[in-house]
Design a binder for these strands. Structure first.
Length: 378
DNA sequence: TCTGGGGTCCTAGGACCC
DNA sequence: TCTGGGGTCCTAGGACCC
């Protein structure tokens, strides 16, 4: 007589980027290490990952390197080396796929959902941590949940090098009093709109009037936020390989651009890089998006559908320039980006998949376990 | 303090067709 | 004279995540 049930595990590598750098430069172990941009803290760039030692100085992901160096002048600053992280990531994902009975859904370089049926999910989570460390020398934390949202959030409580279990039984006990921003998919903007209706905590949101949520956020997002408050989401881990919808390139300029000529030259450069990426996918561009960040800090996005699919960088660049011109904005430019939406693959996209995002389509993509059953609140 | 670079998805509203 | 709905395509804009 066993009690085998399906579980969602969320595996997240600890200080992944910094850890990969320290592995190949062991003399950095124990030092404050900051990885970001080109590794020059005098440039316009932000922190990708700070080691735990650097975090003790208050350095966080997303913080400008200039701020980080002020907080810890003695920190070691390293450039981002994407190929190295991709290689380490592939090794980790390979270990996960080799776990008995595991279904693996990759979310990013350093995280994945693992679906497994077991009677002891915490023991299974620990066996993942051991296997990953033995194969790669990288530490990870694992969240154990009965839904994806609960597993994802649980991981934070397990960090570093730990396992944490979050289910319908302890959801409100652990999460109920926390602000709505503690939820995966609720940022400061949504939290402010929720607060305008008096919904400030996870428990407030769980008990929210659905009609109010629908009026505020629409028929899809409104109920989605309500479910999020209860920790309810899909529990189906889907290993269908992710297929990109688009590829883009963007650059922040160390000095702002002002001349139309240098702006079109920059857009041409970005268009050329984008074409390399979409050629590799063998799917031509059907829509061009332009992203502009004007100084001091104001961002706009504009898109335009093309008359026909193309790989021609001149067409893409010309479209981007036309979108820029249509803005009729004379302010200096600090960032430009060009993004190419590609023709969908034969037969369309397999299942609407999202990376780096716990949106409602990720929730909808499976209903197993997506019931509204939650334990009574304490 | 001064805010990267890579993505995805949702909503609203206008245009157009039947 | 006044005025349908439903569907699709497109653009603008907003939000979130790693």
């Amino acid at each position: 007589m066993t009690d085998e049930r399906p579980w969602v595990l969320h595996v997240d590598l600890d200080q992944f980027i910094a850890a990969v750098e320290i592995l190949r430069r062991p003399e950095l172990a124990g030092l404050p290490v900051v990885v970001g941009g080109r590794g020059d803290p005098t440039e316009r760039a932000v922190v990708s990952t700070a080691s735990y030692e650097a975090r003790e100085f208050g350095i966080r992901s997303g913080m400008p390197l200039k701020t980080a160096v002020r907080k810890c002048p003695d920190a070691v600053f390293l450039p981002v080396d994407a190929p190295a992280y991709e290689e380490a990531s592939a090794a980790v994902m390979g270990v996960l796929r080799g776990m008995p009975g595991a279904v693996v859904e990759v979310l990013g370089w350093d995280e994945a959902f693992v679906g497994v049926t077991t009677e002891d999910p915490v023991a299974y989570a620990n066996s993942i941590r051991t296997a990953v460390f033995e194969a790669t020398s990288l530490h990870c934390s694992v969240g154990v949940g009965d839904t994806k949202v609960r597993a994802k959030i649980a991981t934070d409580f397990g960090k570093p090098q730990g396992v944490y279990r979050l289910t319908r039984d302890n959801w409100f006990e652990v999460m109920g009093a926390r602000p709505t921003t503690a939820l995966w998919g609720v940022g400061t903007r949504i939290a402010a709109r929720l607060a305008s209706h008096g919904y400030r905590t996870v428990e407030d949101l769980a008990d929210a009037d659905e009609a109010v949520l629908v009026a505020e956020f629409g028929p899809t997002m409104g109920p989605h936020y309500g479910r999020l408050g209860r920790g309810v989401s899909s529990a189906t881990v889907d290993d269908t390989p992710w297929v990109a919808r688009a590829h883009g390139r963007e650059t922040t300029y160390q000095t702002n651009l002002t001349e139309p000529q240098e702006i079109s030259a920059a857009l041409r450069e970005l268009a050329g890089q984008v074409v390399e990426d979409i050629r590799a996918e063998q799917r031509p561009c059907i829509r061009v998006f332009l992203k502009v960040r004007f100084a001091p800090f104001f961002t706009v996005n504009r898109g335009r559908k093309l008359a026909e699919p193309t790989y021609d960088p001149d067409v893409i660049a010309a479209t981007a320039v036309a979108l820029f011109t249509a803005l009729e904005d004379e302010r200096p430019v600090r960032l430009l980006g060009v993004r190419a939406e590609m023709v969908p693959p034969e037969g369309g996209y397999d299942s609407p998949r999202s990376t780096g995002r716990g949106g409602p389509s990720a929730q909808r993509s499976g209903t197993a376990g997506a019931t509204d059953d939650v334990a009574p609140k304490p």
